[in-house]
Simulated scan of single mutants.
Amino acid sequence: MSPSVMYRTVARAEAVTWTLLIIAMILKYGVKVGDWPVSVAGFIHGFVFLSYVVMSILVGMNQRWSKRLIVGAAATSVIPYLTIPFDKWLEKNGKLVGDWRTAASDHPGDRKWTDATMRWLVARPVLTAALLFVAIVAVFSTMLFLGPPGGRS
């Protein structure tokens, strides 16, 4: 799967989970069905949110985006549905062109340890997916332990 397809897939999933979360909040506060819809949708959205942030970093490094653009990409997940127009902007501006970089080139950035690590990870997609999954679960579990934004009621 190319960087553009992977990024686009996670960006769309992030937007879909925003929809689930908004529907859940309507059910909780408008229809008064209890907390369970927000618990379920919030869980799914939180996991996909973290996955999108990780994907923004990985694809951004692969595509040699500036640090500012990588942070901006990750930040689009905070505003509902912003990942979709941002993805279209990236595509329009050629920021998602190319395959995964698995070998060093003559580019000066390829001499950095961060690029070498990224290439090593990209060359091992199954291991990378497992490592990223474990990292996301660890962050997600920590966030669940700390409690929801705004505290527990």
Rank of each mutant, 00 (worst) to 15 (best):
A74E: 03
L82K: 04
S56I: 07
F43G: 13
P80L: 13
K67H: 13
V54Y: 10
S77Q: 03
G72M: 02
R64T: 12
L58I: 14
V53W: 06
I44R: 05
I70E: 08
H45V: 08
L82H: 07
F43Y: 08
P80D: 13
S66C: 09
F49M: 11
G60F: 02
L50R: 00
Y52V: 02
F49Y: 12
F49H: 00
P80G: 13
A75F: 11
G42F: 06
Q63G: 11
Q63A: 14
L50P: 00
W65Y: 10
R64I: 09
I84T: 04
T76P: 04
R68E: 14
F47I: 08
S66E: 10
S56D: 07
S77W: 00
I84P: 00
M55Y: 05
V59T: 05
Y81M: 14
I70F: 01
N62V: 05
G42R: 00
V71N: 00
I79V: 15
I57H: 04
F43Q: 01
P85N: 09
L58S: 11
G46M: 03
I44D: 03
V54G: 06
A75R: 03
I84R: 04
V59D: 03
A73R: 00
Y81H: 07
M55E: 12
P85E: 14
I79C: 09
N62A: 05
I44Q: 06
H45T: 05
S51M: 11
G60C: 04
V78R: 01
L58Q: 05
A75K: 04
K67Q: 14
Q63K: 04
P85A: 13
G60I: 05
L82S: 13
K67P: 01
V78M: 10
I57S: 10
S56Q: 08
S56Y: 06
T76G: 11
L58N: 02
V78G: 04
V48N: 08
V71S: 08
V53K: 06
G60N: 06
R68D: 14
A74M: 14
I79G: 10
T83V: 11
S66Y: 03
Y52A: 07
Y81Q: 10
I84H: 00
I84G: 01
